[in-house]
């Protein structure tokens, strides 16, 4: 997993860009294991327009530090839990997706 961390505000991105979309500072490439833990999660039953429900959202804390909001893959049988281990499984059209370990 490749991450791009803003040198200014520390925001983490999974797609490369020259400057941070948030603060405009330059980006630094940072290899990441893709592993993280669930900092919090919610199963969304009434969602945003055009997004089929339910879906799992999680704030994931990466092993290397920093958090990103992501989808948790819903094809898992296991229930999410705070502190539960997750691993990056790819980018979808709704951003990063992690699956539970």
């Amino acid at each position: 997993m490749e991450t791009f961390v803003c040198a200014g505000c520390g925001r983490i991105y999974l797609e490369q860009s020259e400057r941070c979309g948030h603060c405009g500072a330059e980006m630094e490439e940072r290899p990441a294991s893709g592993r993280g833990i669930v900092y919090s999660f919610s199963s969304v039953h009434m969602g945003a327009r055009g997004m089929p429900t339910p879906y799992l959202l999680a704030l994931v804390e990466l092993e290397e530090g920093g958090r990103i909001l992501a989808r948790l893959a819903d094809d898992d049988e296991s229930e999410p839990s705070i502190g539960g281990k997750v691993i990056f499984s790819g980018l979808s059209d709704t951003g990063p997706v992690f699956r539970m370990l």
């Binding site: 919090s40 919610s42 969304v44 009434m46 945003a48």
Partner: peptide, 11 residues
Amino acid sequence: VGSTFPALFGL
């Protein structure tokens, strides 16, 4: 990512 305000406050 599919976040709504209820979702943010759910987290």
